[in-house]
């Protein structure tokens, strides 16, 4: 088994090969369907929930960039989603800047926070990386909780405005806010796609599959990991900022470990290493939670937890990974076997 890379699933679910990759017509069709769904969403479901789905989808895509392509499981990504939510909220309240500017400043703050955390965390991998990131996120939770003058402590930040050049529809109605925020969400997702399909993305997959060998090829693995960590934090921050603006308040929940756990659950459920999986996972979990909450059921965790366990046990490559594997099989392509990846890096040292 793999000694240095973190999740065995990353190997087989992070299939960069079969399925729809490289088949342009299918990829464009998929993209078109995705766009139509994104545009139709607030007509079909309650607009604030549609915005939740969009924000969580971008958050999960950000995590997938790290987990699926770099093989690093962050269990503290709420630090970036949450820190950006607070910064975005404060910028909107105190400076009254337009909401896209507030959210982008939040994302920049998340990246600034991610740089030192990344530098200190990427020296570890596997469970240790997960624990170090969790520890940093918990430290941030403590700071946010104690620093009441700025963050409001347990009360959070109330009354975050959605300033948008005086266009009242966007500022007050969730339906229009969704369409004003969607370009930022889509830009974030495009950026993640760009990173995955760049020379950098290729190296990233190599550092995930075999870090020791990547070094032998002259790549400074830590530098790549820190870079993707910061990029991932930026996207998580953009998502967190938009989430805060959509709700009009920021609570401690946004920097809590439950939030870190939820985004991991969404990403793994959807299927890691595919980006699409993260989006689908967010759609499923947010919708499910909303349905359960509105039906007055108060054991949401039991249901989402059970769904997660079932998917992980039965469909190890997640919802989307399973779908693409089925499509590939029907086309007669070879699907990566369950236990590819025998030879590993730091062996033989």
């Amino acid at each position: 088994m793999r000694s240095t890379t973190d999740t065995p699933e990353a190997v087989q679910a992070g299939q960069t090969r079969p399925g729809l990759r490289g088949r342009s017509p299918a990829r464009w069709a998929l993209l078109a369907v995705g766009l139509v769904v994104a545009l139709a969403l607030p007509w079909v479901i309650y607009p604030p929930v549609a915005m939740d789905i969009a924000a969580w989808a971008l958050f999960a895509v950000a995590l997938d960039l790290l987990l699926g392509y770099a093989g690093l499981l962050s269990f503290g990504h709420a630090a970036f989603w949450g820190s950006s939510a607070y910064v975005t909220g404060l910028v909107a309240i105190e400076l009254g800047l337009p909401f896209p500017v507030a959210a982008l400043l939040g994302a920049v703050a998340a990246m600034a926070l991610a740089l030192p955390i990344g530098l200190l965390s990427v020296r570890r991998s596997g469970i240790y990386f997960a624990m170090v990131t969790l520890a940093f996120a918990q430290m941030l939770f403590f700071v946010v909780n104690q620093w009441r003058d700025v963050t409001g402590g347990e009360n959070g930040l109330q009354g975050v405005p959605r300033n948008f050049f005086g266009i009242e529809a966007v500022e007050t109605e969730p339906f229009y806010f969704y369409y004003a925020a969607l370009p930022l969400i889509l830009a974030g997702m495009w950026f993640a796609w760009r990173v995955v399909h760049s020379p950098f993305g290729r190296v990233l997959v190599a550092t995930r599959d075999n870090p020791a060998r990547a070094r032998a090829l002259g790549y400074n693995v830590e530098r790549y990991r820190v870079t993707v960590f910061v990029l991932s934090a930026g996207l998580a921050g953009l998502a967190g900022g938009l989430f805060a603006l959509s709700h009009g308040f920021v609570s401690l929940q946004e920097v809590s470990w439950q939030t870190s756990g939820k985004v991991v659950l969404i990403t793994v459920l959807g299927g890691i290493g595919t980006l699409w999986g993260a989006i689908i996972g967010a759609g499923l979990i947010v919708t499910l939670e909303d349905q359960l909450a509105s039906s007055g059921f108060d054991g949401i965790g039991i249901i989402t937890g059970s769904v997660f366990v079932i998917v992980v046990l039965l469909f190890r490559s997640g919802v989307w990974g399973t779908v693409t594997n089925l499509v590939a099989r029907r086309r007669g392509q070879k699907v990566p076997s369950e236990d590819i990846g025998a030879a590993d890096s730091e062996q033989g040292l």
Binding site: V11, G14, Q15, T16, R17, R202, V205, A206, D209, N210, A212, R213, A214, R215, A216, L217, G218, P336, I340, G341, A343, D344, S345, Q347, G348
Partner: peptide, 18 residues
């Protein structure tokens, strides 16, 4: 590696997905 010294590994050591 950048000094012009390249190595191979005793146990085959590749990137399985590439």
């Amino acid at each position: 590696a950048h000094e012009g010294v390249a190595r191979s590994f005793q146990i085959t050591s590749l990137f399985d997905n590439l």
